[in-house]
Design a protein around this nucleic acid. Structure first.
Length: 625
DNA sequence: GCAAGGTC
């Protein structure tokens, strides 16, 4: 009897290849797929515990296979009232460029006994798996469907997954289907409404698409909120007390524990009491070991934040370059939420590859010679990808400048993760003077450890403090009442924005940079180098007149929750979770959410004058009273 | 001409 055929399908070509290499034991045949240059079919034999010795075809899709759109009769903006899009018929389509991939799955399924799905083990992966199943069944209605549960492509882990197939999780797949439907209906309805209405106001907007999306609007909201905080900022004067004492030739500055007060008279009285007391007394001298922690394993969000901070690249660019480095095989998959390495991850083999570098090679060798420490574990794990790390060594000179800098960051970060924390000794001295307490702090860096390779962190010894004894008294050499003003916050920088999006669940690791790019594209915000930051300043975002008008307009339309706030998105996220846990069904959630948004939409439509007035005020400079 | 999420 001929061996059984098993069809394995991964989410992307790189996973298909990695799995094929492990299961095929290095022996497999590679075949091209007609019509697509990225997807390949790998053929090999493997002995499954469940199905015996099988001939396997391992292939992949390239992300989602299908997309959701409205039926053709709703395509015309002029003839479809936007509100109709909440219930308009939708169709699931396979885009022409994905057709060859879908056909390949159908054909391969025809003679296979089992479809074994190897998409990423996250919600989207579960949905992509259901799309693959759909195609496979078109080719073979009776095919058995299984799913591999794996969270990295280490050899033993992959084999373990191959021998322990599980079921596809339909709940997760329908949570994603729900998200897709809601995003389409809500996004399209609001986009058409506001575009058609606001274009009427004048030429400035006549050709513009004024889009709405559950991620792009909250992203814009963060930028506008900060803008108003800057704009409405009123500086306040404060007063403080500074004490200095010259001892053993060192001028020691003591700061007031109350930092500063906004009442001059009170500070004056306090200060006079101190002066009356004349002598200050040392109440605490504490020396204790301190450390600066090595960084966590690298996630996408962190790469984007640190990229804009240290490498002066915007998030979109960092991701593009990381993608190129990944395609060339220099770094691991760059879209990951995971900040913990699994126990069986072979860290040393990747450190080993870096020992040949002129700049950090010696450091890497030092790790192998005993300085190595198991990386800290963060709290995130997407169950699909390991933290970003270098997988192969490439010399700096053979990379274009931008790629070189991102690669260097990934390598240094990785080596830093595998290092010992920096160690130091902190000295804290407190004095009482009159009724007030003042303090000073000293730091002596004893062992730089990870700082030697992670050049982006700064931790320096302070000036050496002289010796103090508890109980000793002295007359301050100098004491002053100082004044100052509170300063306005700056405009939102790119790392701050990415951080806010991450904290509020706006977008995913793979899409955050796209949302930021989108609000720039739509001309809702403009990016510019932060003032005073010099030639290499970090980017900051200032909303355009249109951006301000949209947010302020919606804030005044009379909605319970403004569409520029992250809450509505968070709600969708919670409902998806409820579907995954079986507490709600897809149709319940779609129904609930559509009703809720229909209400928001109706109110916006009835009060569209408020939105228009806001746009006339900001964009057209009209006096709207 | 709309979204957000995968991916090349």
């Amino acid at each position: 009897m001929a061996p059984q055929r098993i069809l394995c399908v991964a989410e992307k070509p790189s996973i298909a290849k990695a799995v094929a290499q492990h299961l095929g034991g290095g022996r497999f045949i590679t075949r091209n797929v007609r019509g697509n240059t990225f997807v390949k079919n790998y053929e090999f034999d493997f002995s499954f515990a469940q199905w015996g010795n099988c001939s396997v075809t391992m292939t992949s899709v390239s992300g989602h296979l299908t997309s959701l759109d409205f039926a053709d009769r709703y395509k015309k903006w002029q003839t479809t009232p936007p509100g109709q899009l909440f219930e308009a018929e939708t169709v699931i389509k396979i885009d022409p460029e994905r057709k060859p991939i879908a056909d390949n799955i159908q054909q391969q399924a025809r003679y296979a006994k089992v479809l074994f799905i190897w998409t990423d083990c996250d919600r989207e992966g579960e949905h992509i798996g259901s799309e693959v199943r759909e195609q496979a069944r078109k080719g073979n209605a009776r095919i058995t469907v299984k799913r591999a549960r794996f969270s990295n492509t280490e050899r033993t882990h992959v084999i373990q997954a191959a021998q322990n197939p599980v079921e596809l999780d339909d709940r997760q797949a329908s949570a994603v289907a729900t998200r897709i439907e809601l995003d389409l209906r809500i996004g399209a309805a609001f986009t058409r409404l506001q575009t058609l209405q606001l274009q009427q106001l004048g030429d400035l907007l006549a050709d513009k698409v004024i889009s709405y999306g559950s991620c792009q609007f909250p992203t814009l909201g963060f930028v506008v909120e900060r803008y108003f905080r800057v704009k409405n900022f009123k500086p306040e004067t404060f007063w403080s007390i500074k004490v200095t004492y010259l001892k053993e030739g060192v001028k020691v500055n003591f700061s007031w524990n109350r930092v500063h007060l906004f009442d001059r008279a009170v500070v004056t009285i306090v200060f006079e009491k101190c002066l009356d007391a004349r002598l200050a007394r040392v109440t605490k001298v504490q020396k204790k070991p301190t450390s600066k922690w090595r960084p966590l394993p690298l996630t996408t969000v962190e790469l984007q934040m640190q990229g804009s901070r240290f490498l002066r690249m915007d998030s979109k660019k960092v991701m593009k370059i990381a993608e190129q480095l990944y395609q060339k095989g220099w770094i691991s998959y760059p879209r990951t939420e995971t900040d913990q390495f699994s126990g069986d991850f072979n860290l040393r083999s990747f450190i080993e590859k870096q020992t040949q570098d002129n700049n950090w090679g010696a450091y890497a060798q030092g790790l192998l010679d005993g300085a190595f420490r198991q990386p800290r574990q963060g709290r995130h794990n997407d169950q699909a990808h390991p933290p970003i790390h270098p997988v192969n060594y490439v010399t700096s000179s053979s990379l274009p400048d931008d790629e070189r800098r991102v690669y260097e960051f990934v390598v240094r970060r990785f080596l830093a993760c595998c290092s010992e924390d920096a160690k130091g000794e902190a000295t804290d001295i407190e004095i009482e003077w009159g009724e007030e307490v003042f303090h000073t702090h000293g730091l002596l860096v004893l062992a730089r450890n990870y700082l030697d390779v992670y050049v982006y962190d700064k931790w320096e010894s302070s000036q050496q403090l002289p010796h103090f004894e508890v109980g000793e008294s002295f007359e301050p050499t100098e004491a002053n009442m100082t004044d100052g003003k509170t300063t306005a916050p700056g405009y939102l920088t790119e790392p701050e924005l990415i951080g806010l999006m991450d904290a509020n669940g706006i977008g995913t690791d793979a899409t955050m940079a796209d949302h930021v790019a989108m609000i720039k594209d739509r001309e809702y915000v403009a990016a510019r180098p932060k003032a005073g930051g010099g030639r290499n300043a970090v980017q900051e975002f200032v909303p355009t007149r249109l951006g301000v008008a949209l947010v302020e307009g919606y804030d005044n339309v009379g909605l319970d929750v403004s569409v520029s706030k992250p809450f509505l998105r968070k709600e969708i996220e919670l409902k998806m979770k409820a579907i995954c846990e079986g507490r709600k069904t897809r149709s319940e959630v779609v129904h609930e959410s559509i009703e809720e948004y229909r209400e928001v939409f109706g109110r916006t439509q009835r009060n569209i004058g408020v939105l228009k007035r806001s746009v006339r005020k900001y964009v057209f400079d009209e006096d709207v009273g």
